[in-house]
Design a protein around this nucleic acid. Structure first.
Length: 306
DNA sequence: AGCGGTCAAGTTGAT
DNA sequence: ATCAACTTGACCGCT
């Protein structure tokens, strides 16, 4: 069975996650700023609970949690530990309740930290900030029961092999909760599956196979081959990504995402798998449900033809 | 109430 | 040298 994944936000369902800016917090005195951050965290815990319920009710089996679920948590000036904010312990309990709800509803949760996490950067300050960010993700992941924290391999910095070695070195500095959840994803510009698979095996971490990126950045592996190789890196249900190009495969900027996913872009070889597929589409939950229905129809045709 | 510019952070490659 | 792109909008100050 395919478990369908929704990324971060809702387009039609009335579920909103709150956010703020460092500039806005800087304008407040410290108590007011911490009150505001606590309010946003409380709102986001409630919204995550609502997201879990919505997904479970609508046949969406996985939800990717936005990295800003605790706004500015790792900010050098305004960062905080949630337990220390006003009412923070209760908010942590709200997040822990999301874990129970997700488990009860069979929902998988994941993270995809943003582009500022560059574990293999030659800049020590960037690596420190990246580790801090991944440890924050791991903390929240433990609260809510997320089993995937997915990042890209990072930059090339003039030497691909050295860049992958640097990733491995800094990976070793992560805590066990972070390491056990970390996954890497092939990207559309620098690292294709064939380059990441050896690193995955060396570190014992899974490859999140993004077939759209693979179609943008080829490596000699077919989709079926990359699928098989990626599957073998997983010690739990594999998680892959799907999306469609905004202007078609022959149009400009084929790496940019369309609002919806063309069912023809869904690899045939994924159909029989037990697999989580996160749908990266601006169309959000309607796009996920539309693709799910199209693939369900295809599966029924296949079954009846049998 | 609605609008548009802005938002902590990195790296790459297109212009 | 600047800027958009990336997992993605939401905030906030202005009218």
């Amino acid at each position: 069975m395919i478990r369908w994944g929704l990324c971060c936000v809702f387009r039609e369902a009335p579920i909103k996650f709150g956010d703020t800016t460092a500039a806005a917090i800087a304008r407040l005195d410290r108590p007011a700023g911490r009150e505001k951050l606590a309010r946003l965290c409380r709102q986001n815990a409630a919204s995550l609970a609502a997201a879990v319920e919505y997904c479970a009710e609508h046949g969406i089996g996985c939800f990717r949690v936005n990295s800003r679920i605790l706004p500015l948590c790792t900010h050098p000036q305004f960062g905080y530990r949630l337990e220390e904010l006003p009412g923070g312990k209760e908010i942590v309990a709200q997040f822990r309740a999301c874990r129970k709800a997700a488990k009860r509803r069979g929902l998988r949760l994941s993270f995809h930290p943003d582009q500022f996490v560059v574990l293999n950067s030659p800049r020590a300050d960037v690596v420190e900030a990246s580790i801090r960010e991944l440890e924050y993700h791991a903390t929240v992941a433990e609260w809510i029961g997320a089993d995937v924290i997915n990042i890209h391999a990072g930059g090339v910095f003039g030497n691909r092999a050295a860049a992958l070695d640097a990733f491995a070195e800094n990976f070793a500095r992560l805590s066990r909760p972070a390491r056990s959840r970390l996954t890497i994803e092939n990207d559309d510009k620098l690292f294709a599956p064939a380059q990441l698979l050896p690193l995955c095996r060396r570190l014992g971490i899974p490859l999140v196979y993004d077939v759209h990126h693979h179609r943008c950045l080829a490596d000699g592996l077919s989709v079926a081959e990359a699928t098989a190789e990626a599957l073998s890196t997983w010690n739990r249900e594999p998680l892959f990504h799907i999306s469609s190009p905004i202007n078609g495969w022959d149009g400009p900027q084929p790496n940019r995402h369309h609002d919806e996913v063309d069912p023809r872009d869904f690899p045939r070889c994924w159909l029989p798998l037990d697999l989580t597929v996160e749908v990266e589409a601006k169309g959000k939950e309607p796009a996920v449900l539309k693709l799910k229905q199209a693939i369900d129809r295809r599966l029924r045709r296949r079954t009846s033809a049998w």
